[in-house]
Amino acid sequence: MSIIKMEDTDLVFKVWHERRLKDIIVPGSNQFNRYEDATVHALDHINLTIREGERVAVVGHNGAGKSTFLKVIAGVYKPSGGKLTVEGRISNMFELSMGFEQEQTGWDNMYLRGLMLGLKPKEIKAKMREIADFSELGEFLNMPVKYYSSGMYVRLAFSTSTAIMPDILLLDEVFAAGDAGFIGKATRRMKELVNVAKILVMVTHNMNTARDICNRCIWLDKGKIRMDGSPDEVTKAYLEYVKK
């Protein structure tokens, strides 16, 4: 049974002011970096339950806390208050060119990422052929990933992250860099994953993606849930708000 449950979940982090010796000796010398030590309320007391079978799109303008929301679920950030329950094997893709060993080949990176997603060496080795086929990267897998294009990173990361049959799949705006053929294929795979009663949470700026793939939509604004409902309803309200 997979579930994501947030009870009054809160996340506040501090942004430290960059201080250099010059700033101390010459007051006012740092014209463009005037902000003081600030706190950012990235998630503001969120209450939410996501159950199996739900495909959730998260929308909102830049800085609304969407990525932070995913990272908290993924266990990258720890909530500073409230309760968070996440059950199930998580697989996630955030910044795509990150989390690769640039000097290593596609194969090596696939293996390493599999381990980091919680697989045992035997399990990931057994899946590598299948991942390679899905990614269609062919000979490129023998090359160090530093020579990859952004689209190739997407293929490698997506193919690996979804091959482990995660209970919970978290995606952050990843389709910007795949070509049309791969987006179609990836969309089908995501639908398959959700069909075996698992959870998908994705951050997107593309309202069509939200409507096509998801059956629930959350609109985040300043770390709070502004609206929660069907994708049609929420994307419509969001677009109307953006136009104003």
Partner: peptide
């Protein structure tokens, strides 16, 4: 290790 620490649970 930024790429790992910011997106994977290692």
């Amino acid at each position: 290790a930024e790429g790992y620490l910011k997106q994977l649970r290692v």
